[in-house]
Design a protein around this nucleic acid. Structure first.
Lengths: 140, 140
DNA sequence: CTACATCCTCTAGCGACTAGAGGTGCAAGA
DNA sequence: TCTTGCACCTCTAGTCGCTAGAGGATGTAG
């Protein structure tokens, strides 16, 4: 068999080497077999799992959510209701975060536009921060 | 004089009690005077400063950026160019984050829509996570 | 055989708090 | 005056998801 080193696994999955070891340490990835000299030797399935984790992390899923998703993936006969629920929850989070960021964006734009590039005592950036009541865009 | 306790300061500024102590510990807030019994006694100016910090944190500014903004606020004769630069940088960050979250939202929607609520082996949520190539929306 | 890259384990650090232990201060009611 | 009970104090350690570095072993190419 080909032996996949941790560096190779990292390169193929897009997960960094220390992160691979970290995932093993928190049991998100099964401990792989070792070479004579105690070096990790991964299987192709490990690469897929790492890619799965990486993609899920990119989508902002938390490690515990990913743990659940991986458990589901490991047993394909289960109902996918949990997976669906996790994805939906994440979608709602993302939508909320976008709304909140849009509000921040508007507020930052007002601040930046209002800045006359003069001295601090006329600066709208400082002023708005000092007094939330001056915000044209209330949030939350 | 009225003595403002830490609890009162927290309530008025919207910053939690332990967080106020934390801000003091990292010198974002000057150490207030103490009562006979060693309890903190804040001034109205401290409340304003805490509110400033809180608002800036809500806008996503990092502590070090806030430290700079506070230094500027403390000396109103300085040019506000730094404040402007900090706000602009933050605006660019926020815009980037919004774009990235919109891409994630699209991907999550595809996943959730594709889920037939059956078993895991037909679940699009799991499938898409397992194989990034299936994403209809490439990001980054 | 000698470089040199890559691997190993282990501990500590990041940011911005948050939680908890174990103890003290203080104001109000009985 | 005493007691109840909340708010305060300091200190340490934990959170999340890694990341960095020390100090050493292994593996490979020339």
């Amino acid at each position: 068999m080909k032996k996949i080193t941790i560096g190779e696994a990292a390169r193929r999955s897009g997960v960094k080497v220390p992160t691979v070891r970290y995932y093993e340490s928190i049991c998100l990835l099964a401990a792989p077999s070792r070479s004579e000299g105690n070096q990790r030797s991964f299987e192709p399935a490990d690469i897929s799992r790492l890619a799965f984790i990486r993609h899920a992390r990119e989508l902002g899923f938390e490690i515990e959510a990913i743990r659940t998703l991986l458990t589901l993936q490991d047993d394909p006969h289960q109902s996918c209701a949990s997976a669906d629920a996790i994805a939906k929850a994440r979608l709602i989070e993302v939508e909320q975060r976008i709304r909140s960021l849009m509000a921040l964006k508007a507020e930052l734009e007002t601040m930046v536009e209002g800045c006359g590039h003069g001295r601090v005592d006329q600066c709208r950036v400082i002023e708005v921060l000092a007094d939330h009541g001056q915000c044209t865009h209330a949030h939350h």
